[in-house]
Design a protein around this nucleic acid. Structure first.
Length: 599
RNA sequence: GCGCUCGUAGCUCAGUGGAUAGAGCAUCAGCUUGCGGAGCUGAGGGUCGUAGGUUCGAGUCCUAUCGAGCGCGCCA
């Protein structure tokens, strides 16, 4: 878009200066175009002269002067170029040049955010949420769900094929799952709970469902394995429903147990023993650190287990792959799972999105990747930081065992019920989903975040999601009014575009044009939250425009038409951004009549 | 003890190595006989945890240190 054009212009100017001998070859460095915070500094700035100064052996202002001359040719897109400060190039564009991009946005439509910024590793697998099938999707998992889903959407816009995937930890030997099944069975048969059993409403709900669905199978006579399979199945179904309500739809639900059954676990371990990265030697390697020194130490161990020599790949200790009793350890499933993703199914790259309590997995999973013989750039774990939940202003711990949990579905319902008390349940869920997703995505995944449950539910009016959605509803309203007034946009000719010259009109156009860049950056560093910031900025820029520039003016039909086109372009920008965030773009928003809460 | 992450306004958080560090909420003061006031305008509020370093330039990169959170099983 506009920035690319500028970048190309400056690059070719640099190239011609090198060609003519005015700049040395060493000045051939990447050109960056940046925003100007201060409008007096023009539309865009370029720091090339500053960066290239040392390599070129010339003073920054001298380089800047040469560039200015090379760029300010007859018929250029520039209104003017200033050299400012230590050597910035402040670029001021002709307003017609900026305005002409409105039609390009209209032509692009929903493909506005698309870039081809992911140039390698195009066929991606992104695994996220993947909570154990012994509990519901909590508000804690909600962050991973919102983040992962938005990241998938951004990767797609950046030009990748992406399969979102959910890993079901359904290994039959899991002690957690056994305990969960015992808890469900105890509720269903009215027996005493096992020690440290699972409590909470959802356990009872599952127990009741088992009774309803399988009453003909005389549950009381069934073994624990039967209960485990049934309760797990119902739990997964509940997770699937909740995630769907949240707007997250996985392409694949991948069963851990299926790999044990199919022999993939066995064959994957055989691959490791064959290539020498796993063996049953009676020792374990460990990295011992003393001060800044780190050395590998071999420590004797009981004979029996098969070890993954993960220290060969940077892990701090070797890991047990197969226990002394012959049963595969959990990590054996991970080995097979990665082999499935990168080997059998042939994804170019596999991502796993995990919570902060899993960051210890990174070195060991990277080691698994290396041991299987895959290059490091084909696998990556992304950690999102903890969400601390506040209730009544105090931290509220979330634990499954003691039933002290807050489900994502309850959060959605509570927000929706409060924001739109008279609406249908479906509409309430839509609002709750939009608010919750936006709230999660406002903060960087890399920063700790406080989730004030009371604020999100009781004061949801203050959530910025309404601000950004209102901008869209406002545009729709204006466009409807325009139609009633007989004003319909036509193709934006250069003559019409020239009418768009108000600073707020130009600011809005520039902001819309930023979307592809924001997507490309987010796809590169996984900074999904940037899109929520962008959404707020775009909405604000529209409100500013709206405040200063009346759209519908029957006495000025040409100007009206140009502004209608701009409104449509802004709507496209907003809708595309909302799509990436997974929130809806309402055409109208009716404020609920608030009931007096205090007597 | 070792490792990972974070520390920016009263609170919650943004901030491509660039120019005078921003937004929302909260506080205070304004704007509507005009397309939706869920909007707009303005004011106050800062030792970017601390100390060094790298360089033309550091909230951003490096080192140390303080503080907060999390992780270091033949659990899953």
């Amino acid at each position: 878009m506009l920035r690319d054009t500028l970048q190309n212009l400056v690059e070719s100017a640099v190239e011609s200066l090198i060609h003519s001998g005015s700049l040395p070859e060493t000045a051939r460095i990447p050109v960056e175009i940046s925003d100007t915070k201060n409008p007096e500094h023009g539309d865009f700035a370029c720091n090339f002269a500053l960066v290239a100064s040392k390599k070129a052996g010339l003073a920054p202002r001298q380089i800047a002067e040469m560039l200015r001359e090379a760029l300010l040719v007859e018929g250029s897109i520039f209104e003017g170029i200033d050299i400012a400060g230590p050597g910035f190039l402040n670029l001021r564009l002709k307003s017609v040049v900026i305005a002409a991009y409105v039609q390009k946005v209209l032509d692009l439509g929903s493909s506005l955010p698309n870039s081809q910024s992911i140039k390698t590793n195009r066929n991606l697998n992104v695994e996220f949420v993947s909570v154990n099938p012994n509990g519901p999707i909590t508000v804690g998992s909600g962050r991973g769900a919102a983040f992962g889903d938005a990241l998938v959407r951004i990767f797609r816009a950046a030009g990748a094929e992406v399969d979102p995937e959910y890993y079901i930890n359904d290994g039959v030997n899991s002690q957690q799952m056994r305990l969960f099944a015992e808890s469900v069975k105890a509720y269903a048969l009215n027996e005493p709970q096992p020690e440290n059993g699972y409590k909470g409403e959802y356990v009872k709900a599952v127990a009741e469902q088992v009774g309803e669905l399988h009453s003909g199978d005389s549950p009381q006579t069934q073994p624990l394995e039967w209960w485990q399979a049934r309760s797990q199945e119902l739990m997964i179904e509940r997770q699937r429903e909740d995630l769907k309500t949240f707007g997250v739809d996985f392409k694949t639900w991948f069963s851990e147990q299926s790999m044990h059954n199919s022999g993939l676990v066995t064959s994957s371990i055989a691959k490791l023993t064959a290539n020498g990265t796993a063996d049953d030697g009676c020792f374990r390697n460990e990295i011992v650190r003393e001060g800044k020194e780190a050395r590998l130490e071999q420590k004797p161990e009981e004979c029996g287990p098969v070890w993954l020599r993960s220290t060969q790949f940077g892990d701090d200790k070797d890991r047990v792959l197969i226990r002394s009793n012959g049963r595969p350890a959990y990590i054996a499933g991970d080995v097979a799972y990665l082999e499935s993703k990168l080997g059998l199914r042939g994804f170019d790259k596999a991502f796993i999105i995990l919570g902060p309590d899993h960051h210890g997995y990174i070195p060991r999973m990277n080691a698994v990747c290396g041991a299987l013989g895959y290059p490091a750039d084909r696998f990556e774990i992304i950690i999102f930081q903890i969400v601390r939940f506040l209730k009544d202003g105090k931290p509220a711990p979330m634990r499954k065992r003691d039933g002290n949990i807050f489900e994502l579905r309850d959060l959605i319902d509570e927000i929706g019920a409060h924001a739109a008390p008279t609406s249908s349940h479906e509409e309430q869920q839509r609002i709750g989903r939009d608010v919750a997703r936006f709230f999660y995505l406002m903060r960087s995944h890399d920063t700790h975040m406080d989730f004030d449950i009371d604020l999100a539910t009781k004061q949801s009016d203050e959530n910025p999601v309404f601000y950004v959605q209102y901008a869209h509803a406002r545009i729709c309203s204006v466009l409807n009014r325009a139609k009633e007034a007989g004003l319909v946009a036509e193709r934006l000719t250069p003559e019409l575009a020239a009418l768009l010259s108000n600073p707020r009109e130009l600011a809005l156009i520039k902001k819309i044009l930023d979307l592809p860049m924001e997507v490309a950056r987010s796809a590169k560093d996984y900074g999904v939250h940037r899109l929520t910031t962008y959404a707020v900025e775009l909405a604000r820029t529209y409100h500013h425009f709206y405040d200063a520039c009346r759209v519908i003016q029957v006495e000025e039909p040409e100007l009206s038409k140009a502004r209608i086109s701009l409104c449509e372009a802004a709507a496209i920008g907003l809708r595309c951004t909302f799509d990436l965030l997974g929130i809806s773009a309402p055409e109208r928003m009716d404020r609920a009549v608030l009931v007096e809460e205090t007597a």
